[in-house]
């Protein structure tokens, strides 16, 4: 479904991503874990088109999207939930969700998806007229995910959905990601919370200072001594 080949990204002269390759198969949850500054967000932003790679290619359903704008990638079925939620603070919850469907013209389909998002996140329905900036962190995260779902994506790119949330809420968000995946959306999840991410993912890649150092089945990684020591706080 999504394939990344030898991706290279520079910030000025600094090489932020060093020849990264990864693939996400249809229906999977794949997670990209790593410490601060490893290049997780950079990878995701490059995949969604917010950053331009210097080399390498990005394929979505076999189509090379490397040269496409973010807008065209959304049309191709990619949806990015940016790091730190980034809802539109001075707009209502409903407006935020409607804007998620900005590129769509099928009114009935949009209505339908809006109902689905409200079913998935009943709190958003209760708060639909409230300004998004007044929501709590967890609610904003739900709104950001709901907004991304409004474009009816095939692949959902999630950037640190657990950031700054209470443990109980993190659990809830991860459950939601799982149900979204079960409903047929492929997920690429970038996380610092390796433990949680590995529990819901089928496969994982470990990123360290711009290169992928390890990859494999999430279950295997969850038990690997190396990972435990480096990311899970085990001994």
């Amino acid at each position: 479904m999504l394939e990344i080949r030898d991706l290279e990204v520079y910030y000025g002269v600094i090489r932020a991503l060093k020849s990264i390759s990864l693939r996400v198969k249809e229906g999977e949850i794949v997670t990209l874990i790593g410490a601060n500054g490893a290049g997780k967000t950079t990878s995701l932003r490059t995949i969604s088109g917010l950053l331009r790679p210097h080399a390498g290619s990005i394929l979505l359903n076999g189509v090379d999207v490397t040269q496409l704008s973010p807008r065209e990638r959304v049309k191709e079925g990619m949806s990015h939930v940016p790091e730190g939620r980034r809802v539109f603070p001075m707009m209502s919850v409903l407006e935020n969700l409607e804007l998620g469907a900005f590129l769509r013209r099928d009114k009935e389909g949009i209505e339908e998806d809006l109902t689905h998002v409200y079913e998935r996140f009943p709190i958003l329905f209760d708060r639909r007229k409230q300004m998004a900036g007044t929501l709590s962190g967890g609610e904003q995260q739900m709104l950001a995910i709901g907004r991304a779902l409004m474009s009816r994506p095939k692949v959902l790119l999630l950037d640190e959905p657990s950031m700054g949330l209470a443990p109980l809420l993190v659990q809830e968000i991860f459950n939601i990601i799982q149900t979204i995946n079960e409903a047929g959306t492929t997920v690429l999840l970038v996380e610092q919370n390796a433990n949680m991410a590995l529990q819901i993912a089928s496969r994982a890649y470990v990123l360290e200072t711009g290169s992928i150092v390890l990859s494999g089945e999430a279950k295997t990684l969850l038990e690997s001594e190396e990972i435990k020591k480096a990311y899970l706080g085990g001994k």
Binding site: S48, G49, L50, S69, P70, R71, R73, V74, K75, S79, H80, V81, P82, R86, V87, F88, P89, M90, M91, L99, G100, F102, L103, A144, R147, A148, M150, S151
Partner: peptide, 16 residues
């Protein structure tokens, strides 16, 4: 208006 609110978010939902 979304550009004023948050440019990255705007681009992520496909606004040029």
């Amino acid at each position: 208006i979304t550009l004023r609110e948050d440019e990255i978010a705007a681009e992520s939902i496909g606004i040029d």
